[in-house]
């Protein structure tokens, strides 16, 4: 465990908690893409099936359980509890266009052709693009609440910090995983535009409104 990995994990955890807190506190999930949240719940479920096969550490297992539980709690809040506030008219990104290519790619490019390894690979590919429905929703409405932009910033930073973690692991442990690295780069690049807006607007105390 290095500092990049730890801050990456904490940033990821923070993102998930910010989202839950925002929905709970405002009693509303407006501005949040339920479709992205479906994809994230799929990602965690597919990836963390290894909870049943590999025990790594208490930290590892606890974090995985929190991620899965939080993902389903978020879905519950969006689709059941605060259903009336869900922005379904703007949340129209077709997720099958992400799910199908990721599934196909995972079947072709994986480390090992076993159910668990293919699902693990699928989750890595899917995670890299899972934010697209959310970014699409923000671009469609042209704005995001400040708390939603904090959520997106924490979530985007997490994979960027993982990239630093992989550079560190390559140099100091001789370890690298090309599938995760390439997907991680794609994932981080997708946030770049948002990072720019976040730094130039939100940090200066302005709302995140997209340039017309």
């Amino acid at each position: 465990m290095n500092i990049f990995r730890l801050t990456g994990d904490l940033s990821h955890l923070l993102a998930i908690l910010i989202l839950l807190w925002k929905i709970w506190k405002t009693r509303s999930c407006s501005g949040i893409s339920g479709r992205s949240q479906i994809l994230f719940a799929t990602v965690y479920t597919a990836r963390y099936l290894d909870l049943f096969t590999n025990f790594v550490s208490v930290y590892n297992s606890v974090m995985k359980i929190i991620f899965i539980a939080a993902a389903f709690a978020t879905l519950y809040l969006i689709y059941v509890k605060f259903k009336a506030t869900y922005d379904r008219n703007h949340d129209t990104f077709r997720i099958e266009f992400l799910l199908a290519p990721c599934a196909l790619l995972a079947l072709i490019l994986n480390h090992e052709f076993t159910i668990l390894e293919v699902l693990w690979t699928f989750s890595i590919y899917l995670e890299s693009v899972a934010i697209l429905p959310q970014l699409f929703l923000v671009s469609k409405t042209g704005e995001a609440e400040t708390i939603t932009s904090h959520y997106l910033f924490a979530l985007g930073s997490y994979r960027a910090l993982y990239l630093l973690n992989w550079i560190y692991r390559y140099y100091f442990e001789g370890f690298f995983d090309l599938i995760a690295i390439v997907a991680g780069i794609v994932q981080t690049v997708l946030y770049c535009d948002f990072f720019y807006l976040y730094i130039t607007r939100v940090i200066k105390g302005r709302a995140l409104k997209l340039p017309a």
């Binding site: 290894d50 974090m63 090992e112 995760a180």
Partner: peptide, 10 residues
């Protein structure tokens, strides 16, 4: 091994 190192990450 390599597989364990991968599954160690979140």
């Amino acid at each position: 091994d390599e597989k364990e190192m991968r599954h160690d990450e979140l």
